[in-house]
Design a protein around this nucleic acid. Structure first.
Lengths: 228, 228
DNA sequence: CGTGCAGTTGACGACACTCAACCCTGGTGG
DNA sequence: CCACCAGGGTTGAGTGTCGTCAACTGCACG
């Protein structure tokens, strides 16, 4: 693909908005595309971090293993998100978490060398990275604030957050999501999440079809969050 | 205080290490010191963010209010930590959380104007800020991963984390901490935390005197975290 | 046709929350 | 001087949400 075409695509995202062609091509020096199938890992926790990536299509879950061998989903990355950017600063850094594709997904992979040569010294990119970090940080803080809520409400909060990421594509969540993944994200067991989702289904607020979750009544789910 | 003296003090922290005097004095343009007593707020959530701060002595809790009016402690800031740095990027930003002093504490307050004129364009400072953010992010992720553990273990994890922040000052935690604050931090109620701490006391693993918590057997507390 | 993944349901029990007392200390005011 | 209050800490009894364990369905895939 031509650099100029790539700029058109990436220019849609806040991170790459309004850059000169010259700066842009420096920023993506040594880039390559990577296509991942469902469940395929982009990065494994503990691996030497020699590249970082920008999500183009699909979605990824950022996963941490607990000592018990359970998974905890720390973040859902969607198109435009930067993955592994933070760890590029350390010369011999390792990825702190695993990154796994949810459904067919593509990323733009950039070598650490490019980060060092073009990103570190570019104050605007640093500041934009910081800004994207800010929102991810806020979402983690939200999670912590929600941790005392009932499971019902935590699930509701998750559904609404994911729905928010969805631009214009209607009421369907942008990510194919299993009950297990919901559980790993809200900090509960599959069984409990299933009971909770079943209730929402019976109330006619959501519908699931092959891991695609459709939010039928976002307003009433928001009410669940607010009540008592 | 002379700028050169200030540089000596701040130069101890990674953030300000090895800077030329000229760059340094630009970075702290318009600085002023602020002393806060126990419980005094440095920033209130929702206030217009016209300054950020660097902790010099004491400690601060970063607090979020839940819809129910409960507090959630998101982070404990200790000397060298930057507070409010992330929100400086937004022109009309408001602080997302409140910042409250725990015991007598001092900070260096810097106006947003300084951030915009000297920090944003300085790639090294941006990269150092990012790096400090990285560790705060990791600690939030740790919290999320721990959220399924028993209260006993979450408290143990908190105590050990805080003990880690303590450089050389022995077995006493660097922060005066009430049971309520522990509860707000691990996501539990005061009563449950008290029962948990009482048990640790009776086992001779910790001792509390006027909010100062002393860790007598860090090794055995670490065992509690690992077992079962 | 067996294997693995996703989803589901029920019975049981435990951990932590709720509510209600109560103690102790230090400060404040009548 | 004593009463009162607020903040921090503690204890007990009762309750409920959610985790654990176990069994079972449906489906896709090689």
């Amino acid at each position: 693909m031509e650099v100029i075409q790539l700029q058109k695509i990436l220019g849609e995202y806040p991170l790459f908005r309004g850059l000169s062609l010259e700066v842009f091509s420096d920023l993506i020096a040594g880039h390559r595309f990577r296509n991942l199938r469902h469940h395929e890992a982009l990065y494994e926790a503990g691996d030497l971090a020699h590249s970082f990536a920008i999500v183009l299509t699909g979605a990824f879950k950022l996963v941490r293993k607990t000592p018990n061998g359970e998974d905890v989903i720390v973040y859902f990355a969607t198109p435009g998100d930067v993955i592994g950017g933070l760890v590029m600063l350390k010369p011999e850094g390792v990825y702190p978490i695993s990154v796994v594709a949810m459904g067919n997904s593509t990323v733009l992979v950039l070598p650490r060398a490019t980060y060092v040569s073009a990103w570190v010294g570019n104050a605007m990119m640093q500041s934009r990275l910081t800004s994207s970090l800010y929102s991810r940080m806020t979402s983690l803080q939200d999670d912590k604030a929600n941790s005392k809520l009932s499971l019902q409400k935590r699930v509701a909060a998750l559904l609404l957050t994911l729905l928010d990421k969805n631009e214009q594509k209607g009421s369907r969540l942008p990510i194919p999501l299993t009950r297990q993944e919901i559980a790993d994200s809200v900090g509960a067991t599959v069984e409990s999440v299933i009971r909770c989702m079943s209730e929402l289904s019976q109330l006619g607020l959501v519908r699931t079809e092959d891991r695609q979750i459709e939010i039928l009544r976002a307003d009433r789910i928001a009410e669940i969050l607010k009540e008592g």
